[in-house]
Design a protein around this nucleic acid. Structure first.
Lengths: 212, 212
DNA sequence: GCTTGATTTGACCAGTTGGTCAAAGCGAGG
DNA sequence: CCTCGCTTTGACCAACTGGTCAAATCAAGC
């Protein structure tokens, strides 16, 4: 008789059954598809439910609201997205460290374009749901790494440019291939994968820019 | 007694009264605000009407549908957006021509960020409403200008890189400052205008890249 | 100040939206 | 094979969506 409280409102710890793990995963996967293609307001629960092969009320048994799905995706994403920057090693060879970062970021665009677009959509619309993380974690991480870059410049190991704009340019150039994929494909009469050429181009670009 | 047919369905030519010009302008302005901030599906007629200080039925007296406003904005925009590329002069000094293009494109980002975001939103979502223009005019223009770049490279006047990816990189780097404005401001503890530094940075970057 | 067409609007509509709820189905441990 | 809590769902709701319509208001030339 007594109805079970919704999953997300249960007082007990996060001990998940197999079904829960599977369904939560399916919902996040479906949400990624829909949110990245339509933006937050453009996405509908019905669409997400259909993509996850669940009924709409069933969706809301696993997540309390549309916004909760979106937030779960974004916070989970931000970590993965910043990992390559975190791994920039102050002790490594400056140019190679930066080129590795560029390469890894380009691989993220190639392998996880939906994640990139989800993020782009959110930032485009003023990042109302992750402005805290942007102004907090992200700001700190960039400040820290900019400091590393500054030291490399001061010791003459890479050319002297504005360190934060250098980071911006890496983001812009790599994310462009995921976020503007439609445009990239249409302009390069498609059929061919743009990523190999992009890799070569970016390697050249940053080598020339950073050469002391 | 006889009701006037809606403005957009009138058989006569486009002779517009002062009121028509004013209101159409107000609607496009409001539409730009809302579409660029919310995307097509996320924008609502009520919001646009409120921003234009018109009633919703009044909106639909000047435009037949939500989509018509969006399309009007996009087609009008695409031309302005490509102008700087059109002006790239095959007879000019290669490096200066390209740096001028970069500079003008960065000015567009600074002065028309809403237009940039409107475009970004549309491309992000697969450009369902302007894929024709992208695959047609844009593709042709880029092919033509890539040919110019190729000649400059063949005659040793700029360094040899993939010409289309060179154009992509200019787009990516300049539009980033408009489209990801929120992120840029948050990362550079804001308060200061990022554009002057960005101009210097991009100038350096492309000078080094293009130096033969 | 009257007429005629341009402009504006309140009331309305059918379809969609995010979200709720009580009841029904299900499966693993006893 | 039976219970009991986990899972699923059909029916429903109020708010909102893009869009329509007939009637009311306005404004400029006569």
């Amino acid at each position: 008789m007594k109805a079970a409280p919704p999953l997300w409102n249960r007082p007990s710890g996060p001990k998940r059954t197999r079904i829960q793990t599977r369904n939560r995963q399916a919902i996040l996967e479906a949400g990624l598809d829909v949110f990245s293609a339509q933006g937050f307001r453009g996405a509908t629960l019905d669409e997400i439910a259909a993509a996850a092969r669940l009924s709409k009320p069933n969706l809301l048994y696993y997540f309390p609201s549309k916004e909760a799905i979106h937030t779960a995706l974004l916070t989970q994403l931000l970590d993965t997205w910043l990992d390559p920057l975190r791994e920039l090693d102050p002790e490594g060879d400056p140019v190679e460290e930066l080129l590795t970062y560029v390469r890894r970021k380009l691989e993220l665009s190639r392998d996880y374009p939906r994640e990139s677009r989800l993020f782009a959509n959110e930032i485009l619309q003023g990042a109302p749901r992750i402005s805290d993380a942007i102004e907090g974690d992200l700001h700190r991480l960039v400040a820290e790494k900019a400091h590393v870059l500054q030291r490399w410049m001061d010791t003459g190991r890479i050319a002297r440019v504005h360190p934060v704009h250098l980071i911006f340019s890496i983001w812009a150039l790599t994310q462009h291939y995921a976020d503007f994929d439609m445009q990239v494909s249409a302009v390069l009469g498609d059929g061919e994968d743009p990523y190999p050429e992009a890799g070569v181009y970016l390697d050249t670009l940053f080598r020339k820019l950073l050469a002391p």
